[in-house]
């Protein structure tokens, strides 16, 4: 177990190195640079800025410096917001994104799993049909359609909830709903499929034969294996939901992390982009590791290798 974790952590290093290098090369190849604006910055000022951030040195030197800094999780100051370290920007944004994503995932699991279980237990009956209708519709309505519709109905017409911002508890409701609906739907589908498969297996039949109630069978035996697909989905989903809720952040003015990925790349804010990409990659890999560990816990048939 310990050796497994250690090995996986060590394997992350070369992967992260490749990602860092790839990102570095790609952003540097992109046309334009960080100090461009509609109004030309005076030549002397621009030269000074390039010098200040070491951008006037040969590219390979910059690369070595960057790798050394990245290894210490220190990407230097953002070019766009020079009084802040990229690290500070990332952590502040991450705190908000993690809260938004955490709520959304919680909602997704709390609603999605029971929906899937009920659908599986009532296969081909009305409840199944209703749950799967919702699930398919939820997957099919993009959140940038859903978000504005929710605002239109609940904020602008009914005046029940704030139209945006991340301040009061009430302001969290709409972005969390808009973000989680797709995930609720998808988790419901996964749970249903997983449960259907498990419910046909021998040990479940045995449990039934022993006279357990259907509820007892599901809660006591089947659920643990039936939600395995959900568990393996949760890793990448958590990474995406935390890092990639760009649309929701924009519609609801949530000061999260996702925007920096886009804004950083578009502004050629090299340090910020490299920081976000590496942060995302490391976060995703860590989550996948956690998922694998959880998987092993839930399914005794799986061995860690």
């Amino acid at each position: 177990m310990f050796r497994f974790v250690l090995r996986r952590l060590l394997l992350m290093i070369p992967t992260l190195w490749v990602i860092a290098t790839l990102t570095f090369v790609l952003v540097r190849l992109a046309p334009g640079g960080p100090f461009m604006s509609e109004k030309e910055i005076p030549k002397a000022a621009k030269a000074e800025l390039l010098h200040r951030y070491g951008l006037d040195r040969p590219l390979h030197e910059q690369y070595v410096t960057f790798l050394g800094n990245a290894a210490r999780f220190d990407f230097g100051p953002s070019y766009k917001y020079p009084d802040r370290e990229v690290r500070e920007i990332l952590l502040q944004g991450f705190a908000v994104s993690a809260e938004l994503g955490g709520w959304a995932l919680l909602v997704a699991v709390l609603f999605g799993v029971p929906m899937g279980v009920i659908a599986a237990m009532r296969q081909n009956r009305a409840a199944d049909f209703a749950a799967m209708t919702f699930a398919l519709a939820g997957v099919s309505v993009p959140n940038f359609v859903l978000g504005p519709l929710l605002v239109l109905v609940f904020s602008l017409t009914l005046l029940w909830l704030p139209a945006a911002l991340w301040t009061s508890p009430a302001s969290r409701v709409l972005p969390v709903i808009a973000l989680s609906v797709g995930y609720v739907a998808y988790i419901a589908r996964l749970t249903r499929a997983g449960m259907l498969e498990v419910l046909q297996q021998d040990f479940v039949r045995t449990a039934r034969a022993k006279g357990l109630t259907e509820r007892g069978v599901v809660v006591g035996h089947a659920l643990q294996l039936g939600i395995l697909p959900v568990v393996s989905y949760l890793g990448p989903a958590a990474a995406r939901i935390v890092m990639g809720s760009i649309v929701i952040e924009q519609i609801f003015a949530v000061p999260g992390l996702g925007r920096y990925l886009v804004v950083g790349a578009l502004n050629r804010d090299y340090t910020l982009v490299l920081g976000v990409v590496l942060f995302y990659a490391a976060f995703l890999m860590l989550l996948n590791l956690i998922v694998d560990l959880a998987y092993q816990r839930l399914d005794p048939r799986v061995e860690l290798s």
Binding site: V151, L156, L159, P162, A163, A164, I251, A253
Partner: peptide
Amino acid sequence: TCTNLYKS
């Protein structure tokens, strides 16, 4: 977003 905030 900010116009929605103004309106609401």
